[in-house]
């Protein structure tokens, strides 16, 4: 049973139910307490994140945590069950008895019927790993405030909810490669490390979902829920990245973040459009009809993503940065998919 830990000074959070554990999950990656900044991306990491996780934010986190607890009250540990045979109490399967097996698990009813010795197998109850895949590419800098800030707040909120549910939560920023992660760990007291980690996340690089998810799937052996928080502006498409997760037995959870001005830009006249990731230049003369065509194209792109996820029973949420993050999280609660 968890032992109450004394309340810690600082933001008013609920007492921790368990001690924080840091485990290292990714093989081959040196464990670091603090991710360091890359020199190449220093120029884009100077956005002010000091006010992201202020007292107001923490209050909202607490509220969300209470809502989550009320919604799924009665469950003590590791709500999600993995389909793994182990020492649980729920019957999972039979197998043939072999010499040396524990005869206490022999299903005598089956023996009485078919005169064969079979062992009863039970489900293994273990805690779920939640991986928050945070898009830290350059396109996430767009917006005022930047989409990245919003994504960070959402990631922090989901992390807190997950930690509150005794799940192991890790945060892995990515762009054209996987950035330094925050290793998955359990315990609500970890949340401050999460804040600190998010404040120091590097921003930069292209959006390459496919290679990053492929690499992730190969590096992280413990399967679990992979929450993709991104704008999904990958020139090669979003399908490859999401499929990599699916094919590698991860449970994708898609959360698309966009800025309203991306979907509905107020441009006109002769402009040179600069892709913030590739640096590609495109001279355009923006007229009203062109703007309307762009808006339609953007909506179509998001609809494609939605259809893709829906067709594959992948939870999908789309939000703009003006929607308060707590509203989004509550919607996620209502729709389900993150908490069960």
């Amino acid at each position: 049973m968890a032992q109450r830990k004394p309340k810690q000074s600082g933001p008013a959070l609920a007492p921790m139910a368990d001690e924080a554990h840091e485990t290292h999950e990714a093989h081959g990656v040196a464990a670091r307490r603090r991710p360091s900044r890359s020199r190449a991306d220093r120029s884009v990491a100077d956005d002010d994140r000091s006010g992201l996780f202020d007292e107001e934010f923490l209050k909202k986190l607490e509220y969300l945590s209470l809502v989550a607890r009320k919604t799924f009250a009665g469950r003590l540990r590791a709500d999600r069950r993995t389909r793994k045979v182990g020492s649980g109490i729920e019957f999972a399967d039979h197998r043939r008895y072999s010499s040396g097996d524990d005869f206490r698990y022999i299903d005598w009813n089956v023996y009485g019927r078919i005169d064969r010795l079979l062992l009863r197998l039970f489900e293994e109850e273990e805690d779920l790993h939640i991986y928050i895949m945070l898009d830290a590419s350059r396109s996430m800098r767009i917006g005022n405030p930047p989409k990245l800030h919003y994504a960070m707040q959402v990631a922090a909120a989901l992390t807190y909810i997950g930690l509150g549910n005794l799940d192991r939560v890790g945060i892995i920023p990515f762009s054209d490669q996987l950035h330094e992660p925050l290793a998955a760990s359990r315990g609500k007291r970890r949340i401050f490390k999460v804040f600190e980690f998010l404040r120091n996340v590097r921003v930069g690089g292209l959006t390459q979902l496919g290679p990053c998810m492929d690499k992730f799937a190969h590096q992280y052996k413990r399967r679990g829920l992979a929450v993709l928080v991104s704008d999904f502006y990958d020139p090669r498409g979003f399908e490859e990245g999401i499929n990599e997760l699916r094919y590698n037995k991860f449970e994708p959870f898609v959360l698309q973040v966009y800025d309203e001005r991306e979907a509905n830009p107020s441009l006109h006249g002769d402009l040179t459009l600069v892709d913030c990731e590739t640096g590609e230049l495109k001279e355009v003369t923006v007229s009203r009809s062109l703007l309307e065509a762009y808006k339609a194209e953007h909506d179509k792109y998001c609809a494609e993503l939605n259809q893709f996820c829906t067709a594959r029973a992948i939870p999908y949420f789309r939000t703009h940065t003006k929607l308060p993050f707590d509203e989004l999280v509550l919607r996620i609660f209502r729709q389900g998919g993150f908490l069960r």
Partner: peptide, 29 residues
């Protein structure tokens, strides 16, 4: 060619799709 204002966009792929369609009416433009 006059100096145009530069505007940073997150995903130029969408703009390229739109402009490809618009090229059909470039004469009128």
């Amino acid at each position: 060619k006059m100096r145009r204002r530069r505007f940073e966009v997150p995903f130029s792929t969408l703009w390229q799709r739109v402009l490809r369609e618009k090229e059909a009416t470039s004469l009128w433009k």
